[in-house]
Nucleic acid binder design. Structure first.
Lengths: 196, 196
DNA sequence: TTGACCAGTGTCCGTCTGAACACCTATCAT
DNA sequence: ATGATAGGTGTTCAGACGGACACTGGTCAA
């Protein structure tokens, strides 16, 4: 009932196709992708995947669309490569990147990081900060504040009862806002991409 | 050439449809949605939206798919500073992070980072490395290698014609493998979560 | 006034699509 | 041995789909 090895491979092909084309292909294209000779095979495959929770039908029932599980990735257990590369896939559990880092989608925004004021916290220029708005910030949180009409990512500190913004880079000074400190949101995650 | 008021409204309908069905509807359904009587109107609308960068064709040119601008949302509420950095709202498209960091789903594995040997590169213990397998690694890439039957994340260096593994932490030595260097994959991304 | 432009109409047509059905053939428990 | 099950083939068929084309009616600048 669950997905066997072959279906897993088919699913991988579908996922690759989806990242390129952002849609589930037609039955004919599924045949081309998987090497099927008959559209019936493609349809049965999709039904199997639907049963396993990877794809579903639109509300109007006129097309296939990815279901949440479609975007699962494999999380390896770093401790055990166990020699064989294949084994790494065995010791892996499903993992959803977006769910991992985004808890409140409607209140979450991505903000590119500029500058190196947080470099000592492992936050580089060009990284993307995952920021949750409307959440109460407390001492020690990394927050995106609005200072001088600009976004600033800093650690929220407390100094004699007043909030201050602490950079993680000795070259930058602690910011002590005179008026009210306007906090845009709390940083809940970080995403970085390595070009290569 | 840009979008006028009416097209803006049409786009909103399309976006609503997309959040329900996660696909761009067929020309006929566009007609139903917008109240068109002729499919030609629908097609021309899509062409206009394509021109404005909201939708695009699949690589195989056999269907419409949303383009990046399709997921734009006005961040209008709450006085946003002028010249604010490009903030992509999530909400409508819950899978943006995944797109951002994963290019080849079938070959991508998430591996939790252990230890602080890459701390100077902004990679902390507990972070999750996004690793692409089967991609040729070259000097300067961050790679996951298999050393002593364990995963190791290091920079791939070249030393007198031999590959070496360079940690980004002065407390760790450069690893010079005697035999063949077994490379599991190339690090293409990083995901971190801040508990709060 | 005129003409260009553009959103939208109406219609035709080839083809791509998905549904349905009969059939084949490994695998596997009985 | 023998069914039953399940993945896959081959074929037919109605209709949905998108492309193309001629046309209409507003708007706006010349």
């Amino acid at each position: 009932m669950a997905d066997n090895d072959k279906d897993r491979d088919y699913l991988a092909h579908l996922q690759d196709y989806y990242t390129d084309s952002r849609r589930i292909p037609s039955l004919q294209r599924v045949c081309e992708l998987m090497g099927f000779a008959s559209k019936t095979a493609a349809k049965k495959l999709l039904l199997r995947l639907e049963n396993a929770g990877y794809v579903e039908r639109t509300p109007d029932d006129d097309a296939w669309i990815p279901a949440p599980r479609f975007f699962e990735r494999m999380l390896a257990e770093s401790a055990v490569p166990a020699g064989m590369p294949v084994a790494a896939e065995n010791g892996a559990e499903p993992f959803m990147l977006d769910d991992y880092v985004v808890k409140k989608p409607s209140r979450t925004v991505m903000i590119p990081v500029k500058g190196d004021s947080m470099i000592d916290a492992g936050i580089h220029s060009g990284d993307i900060a995952v920021v949750e708005r409307g959440t109460g910030a407390s001492k020690g949180d990394f927050v995106v504040a609005i200072v001088d009409n600009e976004f600033t990512l800093k650690e929220l500190g407390l100094e004699r009862g007043r909030f201050v913004l602490i950079p993680h880079n000795p070259a930058y000074p602690i910011i002590r806002p005179q008026g009210e400190l306007e906090i845009f949101g709390v940083m809940v995650g970080l995403v970085r991409r390595y070009a290569h």
